[in-house]
Design a protein around this nucleic acid. Structure first.
Lengths: 108, 108
DNA sequence: ATACTTAGTATGAAAAATCATACTAATAGC
DNA sequence: GCTATTAGTATGATTTTTCATACTAAGTAT
């Protein structure tokens, strides 16, 4: 996959970074509520599994969309937040959110 | 899942309609290029399987995002296009596309 | 009659994503 | 010593998604 393939390249790149069942939701929560501990995120998404949440956060970190800060305390404290680059997703995420609500209205 | 759960509801609704590996791409192609036959879509997405393309199109139709018109000809001709409601995804899709390109630049 | 076309279905296999569950570390408080 | 806390890892099972492949229908062109 490279840019020579035209405009679809943009969509495909985006999907590779934020595609999946949970990533847009994680990013949106961090966008709306700022810094969050692991446990707080888990509480915000009761459906997600502990292990899956960990894994998704790792992948978002690798994509440089979020930052992970570990505090040397016991019990451990780990905080997640959007990176500067992650914040550039604001427009995308807000539009997705808005469309979801209008689509819901449409279905009635 | 219902609206009482707050703003995350919007994202989750959106993901249910256009989440998945291929749907945003299909929608984006239809947005950019208008009406397309099945075979043309397939050619635009060489990686997707025949069967999976059929299935994704069915789901998008069920979500009322695309329209399917069958012409009584032989060999068969079937045309797909965004529905009026599907066109409301324009902002979302264009933003996703744009972000993909800027993200790509960022990685360099 | 045979080959070609297009859009689609059907099948089972393979891969990916997600799941539940149990486990660890390290310290504080009782 | 025992329990609680938090953020994680590890495991294997299950579910979901995607895959390759072969098949159908129904005319047209040769």
């Amino acid at each position: 996959m490279d840019k020579s393939m035209g405009t679809t390249y943009g969509i495909m790149t985006t999907l590779q970074s934020i595609g999946g069942k949970w990533k847009p939701l994680i990013l949106f929560i961090l966008l709306e509520e700022g810094t969050k501990r692991f446990g707080e995120l888990k509480r915000d998404m009761p459906q997600i599994t502990h292990g899956v949440l960990t894994q998704q956060l790792r992948e978002l970190e690798r994509s440089q969309l979020i930052e992970r800060v570990v505090y040397q305390e016991v019990p451990p404290r780990v905080e997640y937040s959007l990176s500067e680059h992650g914040k550039t997703l604001e427009i995308v995420l807000n539009n997705m959110c808005r469309w979801g609500f209008s689509h819901d209205e449409f279905l009635k």
